[in-house]
Amino acid sequence: MIRQLQCLMLVFLLSGCEPAEAEYRVKFVQDGDSMIVCCEKGNSFTIRLKDIDAPERDQPFASDSRDYLKEMVMDKPIKLIGDKRDKYGRLLVDIMVDGQSINEIMIAEGMAWRWRYSKSKKMKLLEETARDAKKGIWALPESQRIEPWEWRKQRAR
């Protein structure tokens, strides 16, 4: 617990924001699972939504996913929950708007896949429900539903 608090304090110090600060604003939505946010001091940093993986830029449904996320977070105060960083230095977070988890909504509406290493049973259930209801990406023909991690692997060659 102490280690987690130390990490959280370090994140806030690096971002130039006070630890007591609870709300942020989105400056730019990059895609369906990452964005640039800002605190009231004006310092911005990149975040990535934890436990989800949205379509990549050139992938089918990418703009739909990004636009859906943008609609939910732009011009609204957001709360960030999480203190870990990914290999690119992005803060991995759950985003809350008006008490709702944006991460969960993105999966429930079929706007993203559950991250393949996610251990969240709730996210798994939300994805299965969206798939069964053919929501969002699940309404696409199967040939266009390539998981983002597979899409990135194919493009790396």
Rank of each mutant, 00 (worst) to 15 (best):
E23V: 07
K27G: 10
V29L: 10
S34D: 06
M35G: 10
V37W: 03
C38W: 00
K41R: 13
G42D: 10
S44D: 03
F45M: 03
F45T: 10
I52V: 06
I52E: 00
F61T: 11
F61H: 12
F61Q: 12
A62K: 00
A62M: 05
R66D: 01
K70L: 10
E71K: 13
M74K: 02
D75G: 00
K76W: 05
I78L: 09
I78P: 11
K79V: 03
K84H: 07
D86W: 13
G89L: 05
L91F: 09
L92D: 08
V93L: 06
D94A: 12
I95L: 09
V97T: 04
D98N: 15
Q100F: 09
I102F: 08
N103I: 05
N103P: 15
I105F: 00
M106N: 13
A108F: 03
A108W: 11
E109P: 07
E109H: 09
E109K: 14
W113F: 11
W113K: 13
K119W: 06
S120R: 10
S120V: 12
K121G: 12
M123T: 05
L126P: 11
E127A: 01
A133R: 14
A133H: 15
K134L: 09
K135D: 15
K135V: 11
G136L: 12
G136Y: 01
I137Y: 01
L140Y: 06
